[in-house]
Computed example of a mutant assay.
Amino acid sequence: MGISETAVRRRVGKALRANADTVADRWVELQLAQDELRAGIGERELREEADALVTALVAGLDTALPVAQVVNAHEELRRSVIDLSLRRARGGATPTATSLAVLALKEAVLESVQGASDDAAELFAAVLLVNRLLDAAGALSFDTYVEGREEIIRRQSRQLLELSTPVVRLWRHVLAVPLIGTLDTARTQVVMENLLQAIQEHEAQVAIIDITGVPTVDTAVAQHLMQTVNAVRLMGADCVISGIRPPIAQTIAQLGIDLSKILTRASLADALSEAIKLTSDPVRQAVVRR
């Protein structure tokens, strides 16, 4: 007669509960022995992770959840694995190393289970249960790591975009955005958001978009510029595009792009001069005050 899963879970849980400190210590020892598994995490933090995960394993085994669902459905256990994975993702560990670190817990758990029973059939059933449980934890840690790294990359990309599109206050009521590099949809959105926010904060009347550092202007780039100009106008400010060099002017003309409704100047200095005139215009000042 086979051993029931409930009985095996009870025995494994009992062994873990009785040897929790030993299992945690052994897991920490296994990770410290392989630098790629610890990902630069200190021994104290490894021990905190181990205590949390072993405790969560015991709690998960005490539920009525099927073994295949324990890791993903038991909130405490799931959170312990996710926290561990995200911490290692932030530390720069590889997803493989993160999964292997979780799977290293198998050895510590199996050593504890082996010492709690001499029955071969019972031991075999316990090994299968522990493998299923910790394989699921390893898979969750891998998925979490990948998702966490993607989020970190997206956040860093966003920060780089913001750093590459600074809004500079050149004069009273005059702002400028010096653009360098390619202007795509994502970057246009960041430029627009930062510029509109700055217009509101500084009560700007003129915004200069300098494209001296933009290597080429095609139809897509021109559309992005026009979207930004329209958004600036909706905020009640004028917009000047500067840095239109002869090759870019020629390209724009050849493409048939209509920038006639947009104020343009050859250099940032010319644009600033124009902006000062606009902010000094008494008629415009009267309109702004109204």
Rank of each mutant, 00 (worst) to 15 (best):
G13R: 08
G13Q: 05
G13C: 07
K14V: 01
K14C: 08
A15V: 08
A15G: 06
A15D: 04
L16Y: 05
L16W: 04
L16S: 06
R17N: 12
R17S: 15
A20M: 07
A20F: 00
A20I: 02
A20E: 11
A20L: 11
D21E: 15
D21R: 14
D21L: 12
D21H: 10
D21C: 03
D21W: 06
T22Y: 05
V23A: 00
V23S: 06
V23N: 04
A24T: 07
A24I: 09
A24N: 03
A24P: 03
D25C: 08
R26W: 01
R26D: 14
R26T: 12
R26L: 11
R26I: 08
W27Y: 05
W27C: 03
V28T: 09
E29F: 12
E29N: 05
L30K: 09
L30Q: 08
Q31M: 15
Q31A: 14
L32R: 11
A33I: 06
A33Y: 04
A33W: 03
Q34W: 02
Q34R: 15
D35H: 11
E36H: 15
E36Q: 13
L37Q: 03
L37C: 09
L37G: 03
A39C: 13
G40C: 08
G40D: 05
G40E: 05
G40L: 09
G40N: 06
G40M: 08
I41M: 13
G42M: 11
G42N: 12
G42Q: 09
R44L: 13
R44T: 15
E45R: 15
E45K: 14
E45Y: 08
E45S: 14
L46Q: 12
L46W: 04
L46F: 02
L46A: 05
R47H: 13
R47S: 09
R47P: 09
E48F: 07
E49M: 11
E49Y: 14
A50G: 05
A50F: 04
D51E: 14
D51L: 12
D51Y: 10
A52D: 11
A52R: 15
L53K: 12
L53T: 13
L53R: 13
L53Q: 13
V54D: 02
V54C: 07
V54S: 01
V54A: 02
V54P: 02
T55K: 11
A56H: 08
A56S: 10
L57N: 10
L57W: 00
V58P: 00
A59L: 10
L61T: 06
D62Y: 01
T63E: 02
T63P: 07
T63W: 01
T63V: 07
A64Q: 13
A64S: 13
A64Y: 00
A64L: 12
L65R: 03
L65G: 05
L65H: 08
L65W: 01
P66M: 08
P66V: 09
A68N: 03
A68Q: 10
